[in-house]
């Protein structure tokens, strides 16, 4: 399978392990990721807060580049995905943006978890499984942006998404059902309102532990970094010991498919997941 690939700024910095693990597992699964040339920042949460037109045009430029390749565009970052989908929908059907972009809608914009939870990919994953994640109690955490609003994202079940659960099931993990999988962590306030963010992170980690999860798995770089970097502060602020590693779903796929590089991804986390993994014999 050949697809266009829009990594986005986070995957080149704070989510480097997401990018590295994705590239590796995609090559293991015979998915060719073709990074679109000279892409720009999608505008993230900042552009739409300050200027709507800019938020549309920044995202639309990437769609125009991707469309020229003729390949569907896969987007790993939930934030980028939501902005590119926003531009897609508005370029095609909003009078306000008419004539502002040459994007014609001849390619699809696909969320990475949707691509990797497709049935043929799952079959390939099951065939290549060398280290099943047996006994690992995992809750999938999606956050907001790959899901809401469904009118923009086309998410099939925005209140109870299943793409990561399907993947985790194929990897042999024990899936923990819980109610906080789409609760917002406050990622857009991560730097500016750490007071609020610590409250939200505390709520999410608390609910995960209550539900019996030993770790969380996510596809959103803002969620991962928000939860991973604030966990230690939250432990101290709320005087309780928390140890819940936050994985990218691609890292767990890599681990289960026997990648030799998994250790180098885990080293980049603030909450070191290797303690949990060694307890599980992984």
């Amino acid at each position: 399978m050949k697809v266009g690939y829009y990594p986005g700024c986070s995957l080149e910095s704070t989510a480097a392990e997401y990018n590295e693990s994705l590239k590796e597992i995609c090559s293991m699964l015979d998915i060719q990721l073709n990074e679109i040339r000279d892409w720009n920042c999608c505008g993230a949460t900042s552009a739409h807060c300050l200027d709507e037109k800019a938020s549309f045009l920044l995202a639309a430029r990437n769609l125009e580049i991707a469309e020229k390749t003729g390949m569907d565009l896969v987007v790993p970052c939930s934030g980028c995905f939501s902005r590119l989908k926003f531009a897609e929908k508005n370029a095609l059907s909003n009078e306000k943006y008419k004539g502002m972009s040459t994007f014609r809608g001849s390619i699809n914009i696909i969320d990475m978890t949707a691509l990797l939870s497709g049935s043929t990919v799952l079959e390939a994953m099951e065939k290549k499984l060398v280290k099943p994640l047996k006994g690992m109690k995992i809750a999938a955490y999606y956050g907001c942006m790959s899901l809401r609003p469904p009118k923009i994202t086309d998410a099939p079940d925005h209140d109870n998404p299943q793409s990561m659960e399907k993947i985790l099931a194929a990897l042999g993990a024990e899936i923990i059902p819980w109610t906080f999988k789409t609760f917002c962590c406050g990622g857009s306030l991560a730097i500016t309102r750490t007071d609020i963010v610590r409250d939200q992170v505390n709520r999410i980690l608390d609910m995960a532990a209550e539900s019996g999860a030993e770790c969380l798995v996510t596809s959103c770089p803002m969620c991962q970094s928000n939860l991973d970097t604030r966990e230690d502060e939250v432990s101290r602020q709320f005087s309780r010991e928390i140890y819940i590693p936050i994985f990218y779903f691609s890292e767990l796929i890599g681990l289960a498919l026997g990648s030799g590089n998994a250790g180098s991804w885990f080293m980049k986390h603030q909450v070191d997941p290797r303690k949990l993994l060694s307890e599980k014999g992984l």
């Binding site: 700024c9 910095s13 720009n40 993230a44 900042s46 552009a47 807060c49 300050l50 500016t192 309102r193």
Partner: peptide
């Protein structure tokens, strides 16, 4: 009223304006 939130978004946008992408260190 949320001065810092506004300043953050402005710094983010000015990073895009300068480079086309966000450079975290410069932006922060």
């Amino acid at each position: 009223a949320g001065k810092n939130v506004y300043l953050f978004h402005s710094a983010f946008m000015s990073s895009i304006k300068s480079y086309g992408r966000v450079h975290e260190l410069g932006m922060l």
